[in-house]
Design a protein around this nucleic acid. Structure first.
Lengths: 292, 292
DNA sequence: TTGCTCCTCACGTCACGTGAGGTGGC
DNA sequence: TTGCTCCTCACGTCACGTGAGGTGGC
């Protein structure tokens, strides 16, 4: 018979933990003095405690440990729980890796640039959304703003004609897709779009068929994983964010999985004069790179 | 101005989380209606929220995030925090790996043996302790029990003669060290020991000098990391636990770092008849293997 | 009598999630 | 009037750690 502190030293488990395991019926003392409520343990209880520790070290919760310690647990049920734990542990390992690589990348950035990163890049998912869009190759990135302006002006006209409903918070949402597969500053394959409510199925596009440029109405697929950063300030500095995103995917074991998306978060493009402060979220669809 | 649900959708952060960040002063709404207490946000607040998410994704606590978001934080202080985070993240990564390897090993065991493992092996540390011991090479493991008995009997005599105080919970602690560097069942280099209180500095060993076998009194160094399992039942089955421990270090990326220790947890060796149920903890000092 | 060990609550931790119960605007 | 959105508590989560306040054995 061992007092709690002796058992605690023998097992190298804190007294508070032993009391807690008693409370949740995970490991009851072999005997409890009915007058003093002192707990008494025996060395025979060490194997069970050892098993508890071993299962805990695999990452099982105490409730799962309780289940796993039940005598009548079948080998199949045990394997089931182990298999699930393995999956979770693998996911947790990936998360640990991702966290560390984010910290390391940030440290490298500061070391290389001498200052904290200009952009905070996070991963998220984006839902599918209906858009009306027009696509055009723009010769040079310096012409982007004008082209963009013109394309969106055209889109707005057509939207009105077709009776479509623009969506978005806070303002109707404008977005641009860059279909170039590599970073470039010339021959930009730009698709300018406006988010709309899902149109009635009998949409008549013939009305706009004759117009220039050609219009498409479609559901833009969602992306389960995008790397995203927010640009604020002069739109002409935005390529830096695009570069930062491309650099980010390289240093975090991702691959580019789709066209870059520019989401305009502040007022509509044609509401603000050139060079005014704006907020633009830039998203780059990615997929985790298979580690060899 | 965005209502909380709009801001929530835009940022993909739950409403409850935004309220919580308001409460802990991490991200206050740009404006709060003084009559309805409605929170109103602006898109300008997205970059800050984005930064919060980015830092959280590195594993910083919200309190650390608060610190990191303070305008007056120097680049040095930032680097300090990042460096500490990196260390912690590296440790967490190791822990994730260890957890996963324990789960995977357990699954393999069941798959290979068709039944759950007989022993639960955990890692722990052991403190230094003073021992009195005698050492002998035993020709065959079948002779261990008798040799052991004889050695401990001799030890007890000498302890009494020298006036040393035996220590241990619940009974005076007996332990055996196996100095063979590889697993073997013959020529066992056995050191039988008894844990004692630190002796007075002026211990006179000459009294026992003439006796056979030779006696040593020394402080057995602690081990920062041992793999440990508990054997219960017939002592003659104990080599299985020793094998299990050796197998365990191989499958969990450790190296053997010292002699195997047998700690007798139940009554003294000479109190129990041969073949009686006993509890023995077997410890194998290990060191993490450098991963290439 | 003084330490020492044991006891039982109760509260804190961390980052929210989840009701309960109530109000304001269309 | 009915939903819908917003609000503020309050409590739960997980595995303990840490007092506060009190008792029993030497």
């Amino acid at each position: 018979m061992l007092k709690i502190s002796d058992f605690s030293k023998l097992a190298q488990i804190p007294v508070a933990t032993l009391r807690f395991y008693d409370q949740i019926d995970l490991l009851k003392p072999a005997q409890v003095d009915r007058f003093t409520d002192y707990r008494y343990y025996t060395v025979d209880q060490l194997p069970r405690l050892n098993r508890i520790v071993a299962l805990k070290d695999m990452g099982f919760s105490l409730e799962q440990v309780s289940t796993l310690l039940r005598e009548d647990l079948s080998a199949d049920a045990m394997l089931m729980l182990l298999a699930r734990r393995q999956e979770d542990a693998e996911r947790e390992l990936q998360e640990s890796r991702a966290r560390l690589s984010k910290v390391a990348a940030r440290i490298r950035e500061i070391a290389e640039e001498g200052k904290p990163a200009a952009y905070d890049i996070v991963t998220k998912s984006v839902a599918a959304q209906w858009i009306v869009s027009t696509r055009e190759v723009v010769a040079d990135f310096r012409a982007i703003e004008q082209s963009c302006f013109a394309m969106h002006a055209a889109l707005h006209q057509q939207i009105e004609k077709l009776g479509l409903k623009m969506l978005g918070v806070p303002a109707p949402r404008l977005l641009n897709l860059y279909h170039n597969t590599e970073y470039t500053e010339t021959d930009l394959d730009l698709e300018a779009a406006v988010v709309i409510a899902r149109p009635a199925s009998t949409l008549d596009l013939t009305k706009s068929q004759a117009s220039m440029p050609a219009l498409t109405v479609r559901e833009l697929a969602g992306e389960s994983l995008v790397a995203s950063g927010i640009h604020t300030g002069d739109l002409r500095d935005m390529p830096q964010l695009a570069k930062a995103l491309l650099h980010w995917v390289g240093t975090h074991d991702y691959d580019v999985a789709g066209p870059l998306r520019e989401m305009h978060l502040s007022a509509a493009v044609d509401d603000l004069p050139t060079g005014e402060t704006r907020l633009v979220e830039v998203q780059l669809p990615v997929s985790p790179r298979r580690v060899a």
